[in-house]
Nucleic acid binder design. Structure first.
Lengths: 333, 333
DNA sequence: TTGTAGGCGTTATCAG
DNA sequence: CTGATAACGCCTACAA
């Protein structure tokens, strides 16, 4: 069932059918009705490939995520999908994992699909300024289609970034812990990404501002996993009175370790997580966690995306969104 | 940059370029090399629309999910995406929500994209035998493309289903609770879906097998949310000694309620969740939960999908996968 | 207001 | 092994 069939059955030409299809106002009401009726009867849907071949827009946006089963990523994708669907766009989703080679591979595959633009979710794609060879392929991709980074920051043509102010909030909350009398603050992170680095910088700055030495033994790089974190502490047995984790699962691991050893939370140990996920509400006491305003970041990104696609050349390339700390039972400052 | 440009720069015809592109073996090694070199130099990627227009396959699979931010769904999508990518296929992801009209709308949009097949994740799409008008649009869609239901069951042409044996495992675990001396078993569910109904049926059967009356006041329909569940119990104050929840978040809500009121778990209250999500490991004690073998279900689905696409007409339409109970700290049977 | 015809970039089918 | 050419289904000047 194609445009020719519809044209024949309606007794008009394909041009007229095409006009009806695209809501042209240069069709008489009567003809339009007639054609629409046939289209409905025949359950006709235009061929997207033929359309894409002649027209420009594909009405599809590529979205790349390292791991969609991660709570943070899947929430981001949910927000993005909702906005795209509102604008009648489809989403091509790809999951790249965290390895550079795979990431590059997935980006290439997505670009082959002739998407209108691409959204990269997660700071793993941002690289860092010191490792520019890791971001070369991102800049290369941006030559073909506009790129939108969620929680990443790169200064390059055709790359648009939205990120949360992880540095400021990390600085603040570490300061609060210190003012609360905490001196041995464990810092747990699961990556070396752009946002992890900002969080670490805030943590270190707060310590040095307070004249506390930054102890390497209190800065751990582990996987963001409840059980692994608990097991890690079990082996390390660190001497600490507070913990700042860059993701909630690690913070929950710390809490479980504390409960097992009868360490009182928050009296003897303060714990702060990040991302304000459902995990933060699952524990008793509930977890204090940083809300990084994911929904706002995603909304902003999609708004700017359509702004760019509609030809606006004055779209800001970098936007920062303010995080907040949601205080719950694992802190008492 | 199109196939003509590449042909010209390589000094061959477009037919030859196309052959190289599609790995035909009827091209001399020398020609192939020459063409490949030009393609690399020019960073050429074939136009997917032109390809879709002439050829048959679109190399894209539509995946529909009610809510990608749900842990169960996002894990399913992660498993599916991995397998699809292995086979060099793309994934069009759409999130429909739970309302019939929206579901129908999203299915139509996906089909317009000329996908090769469609995967529907979650029993919300399965309807039930008694509400066949709710599944009419699904059967309609199956006339256009093969449909694959994950955790759904419908007997119709071109619809392939994979589901877990929720009835059997629910029957078993309720039986175990009864044998453990539990008599007032609270049943919590968040939907009227096909799989929820199977779970309820298993629960009721176990009770009646043991000569225990099924009490309507112990069967609650609430949202799958930690806080709402806890608040609900706070108001209801049910008299119960065990709980079987059809999703982990509700079970966690019950656990929090118990801890707040000093009810000992598992001594005075057994709790069993469903889906074996990360939440089950976040609590202390950890949650006993049903592992519904999601990865296996997804793998099976994708395998059968490619089998159908490759023209195999002897693909079984219905497959069942066995669940297991992962015993942890909230039960002691 | 409507119709005709050419083009979009592939793949596939024939001839050579 | 390689090349010419006809689909594929739609959009859009340009004509009528």
């Amino acid at each position: 069932m194609n445009i020719y069939d519809i044209a024949e059955k309606s007794g008009v030409s394909i041009a007229t059918v095409s006009r009806v299809l695209n809501g042209s106002d240069k069709v008489s009401e009567k003809t339009k009705e007639k054609v629409m009726k046939v289209m409905t009867e025949e359950d006709y849907t235009p061929n997207i490939f033929a359309r894409g071949l002649s027209g420009e827009s594909t009405r599809a946006i590529g979205v790349l995520v390292p791991d969609i089963s991660d709570n943070y990523m899947s929430r981001a994708v949910a927000f993005i999908e909702r906005r795209l669907h509102e604008k009648d766009h489809n989403m091509l989703l790809s999951c790249s994992g965290f390895r550079a080679k795979e990431k590059e591979d997935h980006i290439r595959m997505l670009l082959e699909e002739r998407i209108d633009a691409m959204i990269l979710v997660g700071s793993t794609y941002a690289g860092s300024e010191t490792l520019s060879h890791n971001t070369y392929y991102i800049k290369k991709a941006a030559e073909k289609k506009p790129l939108f980074l969620i929680n990443g920051d790169m200064d390059a043509e055709n790359i648009f970034c939205t990120f949360s102010n992880d540095y400021a909030v990390s600085l603040d909350l570490t300061k609060s812990l210190i003012e609360n009398g905490r001196k041995k603050i464990l810092f747990l992170t699961d990556s070396e990404s752009y946002s992890a680095n900002k969080k670490r910088a805030g943590y270190e700055q707060a310590l040095s501002d307070a004249g506390i030495a930054v102890s390497p033994s209190l800065m751990c790089h582990i996987r963001n996993n409840i059980e692994e974190t608990a097991a890690y502490l079990e082996e390390l047995r660190p001497d600490f009175d507070a913990c700042f984790a860059t993701d909630d699962a690690m913070a929950v691991g710390v809490l479980k370790y504390a409960m097992k050893h009868g360490i009182r939370v928050p009296e003897d140990l303060s714990i702060i997580g990040y991302n304000n996920s459902e995990l933060a509400l699952a524990t008793t006491p509930e977890l204090t966690s940083v809300d990084n305003k994911l929904e706002k970041i995603c909304d902003d990104t999609v708004i700017r995306l359509f702004s760019v696609l509609s030809g606006n050349s004055f779209v800001p390339r970098r936007t920062s969104v303010a995080c907040t700390v949601v205080k719950r039972g694992t802190t008492n400052y």
